[in-house]
Nucleic acid binder design. Structure first.
Lengths: 247, 247
DNA sequence: CGATGGATTGACGGGAGTCAACTGTCGTGG
DNA sequence: CCACGACAGTTGACTCCCGTCAATCCATCG
């Protein structure tokens, strides 16, 4: 279909993997420059999503995985009734939609938490290309494997940790992800409301709020709205990992 | 190294994918006969594991993924202290070790719950072969994607469901997996002790035991030791999925 | 037959959910 | 410019589910 190509080019004139600041974290991480061109060719740029907009809805036909370029997303699975489960937050360079590969439809919705841009990667093209580029294939395997391990960590968090430990772990994990992206690990902004944090961690909003207050009174963090400063990372880590029973 | 080949051949004379009763569920599911031969060639058969033996230990070098042939395994991750987390049970045709692909070491131990045989699939060979066989590659992607979705279901279970709902879900999931493998979905044997069920579901052993008793008194199931009969599947399913708050 | 480990049952207490009221804070429009 | 509404976040009171501790039962096996 005829599209306003000029405009798109203007908006996305530098939206190429070679110039993308995320290339060292993202899917094409291991590719040579010439291979990266091939990869680049299958990617579709999308207009930015506004806060609250869906990247895809639960039940939509699965066609593509997405790499987050900027902003952030949450993935939510709704199962009969108003009982949602927030299964993941996605930050820049992370891949959304990997859990849909063996199904015709996305098993959950992906919703922007703020203004967010993504790279769309049609999966059939990706699969084909991964035949020619072993590094790309390996990176895709690794991405999925890493997400599996993340999920296992999450299961451990949900089944063994107290509310305090969950929130401490959450903050540390976020901090770590920011650090790896070149941002401060000690001072960052939460893009999600408390309710989403609670849903993700298996806690009531009120509990999240209470613990944030407690952490502040213990000088572990300083929080103002969604701005977070981590004041005592060491103690926070200790709290997140300490055993439940004896000391 | 010189091995007692004669003996191995004797034991495994029919351990080939073409004659394996699991071929319709297992990794080579989508392969043509000739391709299956190639796949078959990279597989290493292993002597059966006895109950309690490790297939691999947490921290071992990652080399292979494993397809369960018979029996069952649990995967356990130990994190400092005696605080284990049982992250999964594996039944015949399922793949163990997919969460290790992007790490040099296995992130958890795989332990046989009963006498168990597995097919070892060296991952570098599998990756190479997946370059030539798109169906194999697709199946590998699908296996990982499916495990991701399972993990998400598990996260939902751990963060939203009551103890009763967890056990009901567990029984139903098991029943379903048995059904798909051609066994009775209404009558089966648990290969794991109560403690493992509790660990997996994020419950204390005592809670598991209490709920099993309650389910019996409600005529939902009949349990004797590890033998389970599901008496009222419909009610069990309803219980597993019903909303927590209002009706 | 005793020993050992798994499973069951009971009593008790605490952590976190629920309900409810209150307090910000932002964006819109009068 | 400020009033208003809507929504996000906070705080308190109460309740209850489930974990912990402890005792007992039961099976299997040496």
């Amino acid at each position: 279909m005829p599209e306003p190509t000029r405009h798109r080019r203007a908006v996305w004139h530098e939206a190429r993997c070679q110039t993308c600041s995320l290339s060292s974290l993202c899917l094409p991480l291991a590719l040579e420059l010439e291979d990266m061109d091939q990869f680049d060719a299958i990617i579709r740029r999308r207009t930015p999503l506004k806060k609250g907009e869906h990247l895809f809805h639960q039940g939509d036909d699965f066609t593509s995985v997405y790499a987050v370029r900027s902003g952030s997303l949450k993935q939510v699975t709704t199962e009969g009734g108003g009982n949602d489960q927030l299964t993941n937050f996605y930050l820049p360079s992370e891949l959304v939609g990997l859990d849909a590969i063996d199904e015709p439809h996305y098993p959950g919705s992906a919703i922007a938490l703020e203004t967010t841009t993504v790279c769309e990667i049609p999966f059939d093209r990706l699969d084909q290309l991964s035949e020619k580029l072993p590094e790309l294939r390996g990176q895709l395997y690794r991405s999925m494997s890493k997400e599996l391990r993340n999920d296992r960590r999450m299961m451990r968090l949900l089944s063994r940790k107290t509310a305090d430990q969950r929130l401490a772990s959450f903050l540390i994990t976020l901090s770590d992800r920011f650090r790896r992206r070149g941002y401060s690990p000690y001072s960052f902004r939460l893009s999600m409301p408390r309710a989403d944090i609670g849903n993700y961690l298996g806690l009531a909003v009120e509990t999240v709020s209470r613990i944030v207050s407690r952490f502040q009174s213990q000088s572990l963090v300083a929080v103002s709205g969604r701005e977070v400063q981590i004041l005592d990372m060491a103690r926070l880590q200790q709290l997140a990992e300490e055993e439940s029973p004896a000391a």
